[in-house]
């Protein structure tokens, strides 16, 4: 009985794969830094201007705070309404996209394709288009957030639906219940808590997103952000950013607490 040390294949011995990957990444790095005109020297050459900006931002104009309180409330209101509308539209789509409820592969595929397409669109891009349609104001913001959260929530929802226990469904089906009864008594009780949890998570993200939507005219605090930046009034910009930071953290805290209670 001879024991032989197994020889490593040629690909492993010469580390072909890692070297190839490193080369690919290096080539992509060089190509993309050429394409974007990255110049390390220029950044450090202009560092004076950048630090000047930071210094001016480090002296927030606190008397600006009362002025931005109302737009801040408006931002939260936009986020709440947008998330709610988006989530409401997401529920039927999520049910239709779940593979354990809908057995028609074509219907499911079409619904998922629509959801995938909606999810590819960045929020600010949607905001720019809806400002063109609805005009400057919070309507455009609410519609943007509704569509943005629709794409996100529907995916989270149908993934939840696909994990449910099928036992109660089969029990109801065997006694001859119709589809709506099955969803109401067997599906909903199983998923309600997770739905609410994901809804709150989406709300957190939307509060963050809604603070910049106004930059393109879609209402909320972003309008004031753009104004202060255009007027080079960086001490006001600093107040806006700090105030948004506080709002985002408070909303995150509330929603995190509620989600921990729920799950």
């Amino acid at each position: 009985m001879t024991t032989q040390v197994p020889r490593r294949p040629w690909l492993q011995r010469w580390h072909v794969k890692p070297i190839a990957w490193t080369l690919v990444i290096l080539i992509l790095l060089v190509a993309s830094s050429r394409m974007t005109g990255v110049d390390v020297g220029m950044f450090f050459g202009n560092l004076g201007q950048f630090t000047d900006l930071l210094v001016r931002m480090s002296r927030p104009a606190w008397d600006y705070l009362p002025i931005i309180l109302h737009p801040l409330y408006e931002t939260i209101q936009m986020a709440i309404l947008g998330t709610t509308i988006g989530a409401a539209f997401a529920v039927p789509f999520a049910v239709l996209a779940a593979s354990n409820l809908v057995h028609n592969r074509w219907l499911r595929g079409i619904i998922r394709l629509i959801l995938d397409l909606v999810r590819t669109l960045p929020d600010l891009l949607l905001a720019a288009i809806f400002v063109a349609i609805f005009g400057i104001g919070s309507t455009a913001g609410v519609v943007t957030l509704a569509i943005f959260s629709f794409g996100m929530v529907s995916k989270l929802f149908y993934e939840v639906i696909e994990t449910i226990d099928m036992g109660p469904l089969e029990a109801l089906e065997s006694v001859g219940a119709n589809k709506l009864t099955i969803i109401w008594y067997a599906v909903l009780p199983q998923i309600m808590n997770q739905f609410v949890s994901y809804f709150l998570y989406t709300l957190e993200i939307n509060v963050r997103a809604s603070t910049v939507l106004g930059y393109l005219g879609a209402g909320g605090i972003g309008v004031f952000l753009q104004r202060s930046l255009n007027e080079f009034n960086y001490s006001q910009t600093a107040v806006i950013i700090l105030a948004t930071l506080v709002v985002v953290m408070v909303i995150d805290g509330i929603s995190n607490h509620l989600r921990r209670v729920l799950l």
Binding site: Y73, M78, L81, G135, G137, S138, T139, A140
Partner: peptide, 9 residues
């Protein structure tokens, strides 16, 4: 949330 927003845009 609903009363705070003005949908006049």
């Amino acid at each position: 949330a609903i009363t705070g927003l003005h949908f006049t845009g």
